[in-house]
Amino acid sequence: MAVTELGQALRRWRDRVPPDAAGLPSGGHRRAAGLRREELALLAGISVDYVTRLEQGRAVNPSVQVVEALARALRLSGDERTYLFGLAELVPPGPDVVPAFITPSVQRLLDRLVDTPVAVSDAGMTLLLANPMYAALMGDPSVLRGFERNGVWRNFTGMPTRVRHTAEERRDFEAGMVAELRATTARYPADRQLQALVAELRTRSQRFAELWDAGVVGRLAGSRKTIEHPQVGMLTLDCDLLRVEENDLHILVYSAEPGTEAAEKLRLISVLGTQSLVGRG
Rank of each mutant, 00 (worst) to 15 (best):
M1Y: 06
L6A: 02
R11H: 09
R16N: 04
P19E: 04
A21N: 10
A22I: 07
G23I: 13
P25F: 06
G27V: 04
G28V: 09
G28D: 08
G34E: 03
L35K: 08
L35G: 02
L35A: 07
R36M: 00
R37S: 00
R37M: 03
E39Q: 00
L43T: 04
V48Y: 00
T52W: 00
L54F: 00
Q56V: 05
V67W: 00
E68V: 02
A73H: 08
L74V: 14
T82K: 11
G86W: 09
L87K: 01
L87H: 02
E89I: 00
V91G: 05
G94S: 13
P95K: 13
V97E: 13
V98A: 08
I102K: 12
P104E: 03
P104D: 06
P104M: 04
S105H: 14
Q107H: 14
R108D: 15
L109K: 09
D111T: 14
R112S: 15
R112L: 13
L113N: 11
P132T: 08
L137V: 04
L137K: 02
M138C: 06
P141V: 04
P141W: 02
R145K: 13
R145Q: 14
W153G: 01
M159L: 15
P160G: 01
T161E: 12
E168W: 06
D172I: 09
V178I: 11
A179N: 03
A179Y: 12
E180M: 10
R182P: 02
T184D: 06
T184H: 09
T184G: 04
A186V: 12
R187V: 04
R192F: 03
A196C: 02
F208P: 10
E210Y: 06
A221P: 01
G222M: 10
S223K: 15
T226S: 15
Q231S: 15
L235E: 12
L235M: 15
L235D: 13
D238N: 14
D240T: 09
E245F: 05
N247Q: 13
V253M: 12
S255Q: 15
S255G: 14
G259A: 11
A262M: 12
A263V: 11
K265W: 12
R267Q: 14
R267M: 07
R267E: 14
L268C: 09
G273W: 08
V278Q: 14
G279W: 10
G281I: 06
